[in-house]
Nucleic acid binder design. Structure first.
Lengths: 157, 157
DNA sequence: CCATAACAATCAACACATTGACATATAGGC
DNA sequence: GCCTATATGTCAATGTGTTGATTGTTATGG
């Protein structure tokens, strides 16, 4: 019964409440609409988040370890394994033994995965620009940075 | 192959990409950490979103229909039904026949649900203030409003 | 009163996310 | 060579989210 008893506390609580509700709604909508835009490919937003991580020039050749992917996407290992299994079934990624560390396997885009990712750029781009149609570039950066700080706050809470 | 070929297009794409990745991460973290804060109650963030909606003074007496809850939280009917089932099992909510519309049932907090919600305020408050510790009130409002606009963009995309 | 339309509830399938516990294999220090 | 820490995988349980299909139930217009 701390700040929440004062008027200022109640206002503060209300703002936070709305903020997290919007976060919740935006995330659900992102996944729902993202899947619709990818209709033909049958890929979820989570799946193209993985493909996008692997397609970056820095990692494109050698691939990424599961550990690196977990840290990049901030997912549990068990969950990521399941996503990778589905991507492997689609022949979009492959798991290769890391020559430098026998324990680790590197996740890499296959040829087909790379081609698919290229083809996906168009609907992804349409999804991005469509959902952000009312945002200026400055506002997008602002939102990105605020979410970045929220993420940091949430990891240390 | 539209804007994405130009430098400006690539920058734009990159910003959007980071933005949605952060949204994804923030949402996952919110649910994960939210559950941890509610440890003793064994409630998820989705569950206290429902309780919070029902606890509002406007609806506290008469309750809300499933349809209204769906619109408020922006969930599918099938999913909300499952959440309500779990809340009913915990005796936090009850479903009552709507006197004005025989098809619809009103969802209301039970006595126990109301008491539980009151007791939950403390950990929720702690979660909110902890995760937003680096935010000024103005920044919280800013983030809330940007998410609000993103939500609108996502519904119309 | 009946037919249609709208709304509500339910079943099934799939994907995603968490935690916890356990298993396997390898790296690296002693 | 052994021991511990690390990396990955696996099994299981639970909760959340979507879609599609189906079955009721009620409102309303003819």
């Amino acid at each position: 019964m701390s700040r929440n008893d004062s008027v200022a506390g109640r206002v503060q609580f209300d703002i936070a409440n709305r903020l997290f509700l919007r976060l919740y709604q935006c995330s659900n909508l992102m996944h729902k609409m993202g899947v619709r835009f990818m209709g033909d490919f049958g890929a979820t937003t989570q799946q193209w988040a993985v493909l996008g991580a692997l397609a970056r020039p820095i990692v494109h050749e050698k691939g990424m370890s599961v550990k690196e992917l977990i840290e990049f996407l901030m997912l549990s290992r068990q969950n990521l394994t399941a996503v990778l299994d589905r991507l492997e079934t689609k022949h979009w990624i492959e798991r290769i033994k890391d020559p430098e560390d026998g324990r680790s396997r590197l996740i890499r885009l296959t040829e087909e995965g790379n081609r698919t990712w290229e083809a996906m750029q168009e609907p992804i781009e349409a999804f991005y620009s469509g959902s952000l149609v009312n945002f200026s570039e400055a506002e997008e950066v602002q939102l990105y940075q605020l979410l970045d700080r929220l993420r940091n706050g949430l990891t240390e809470v």
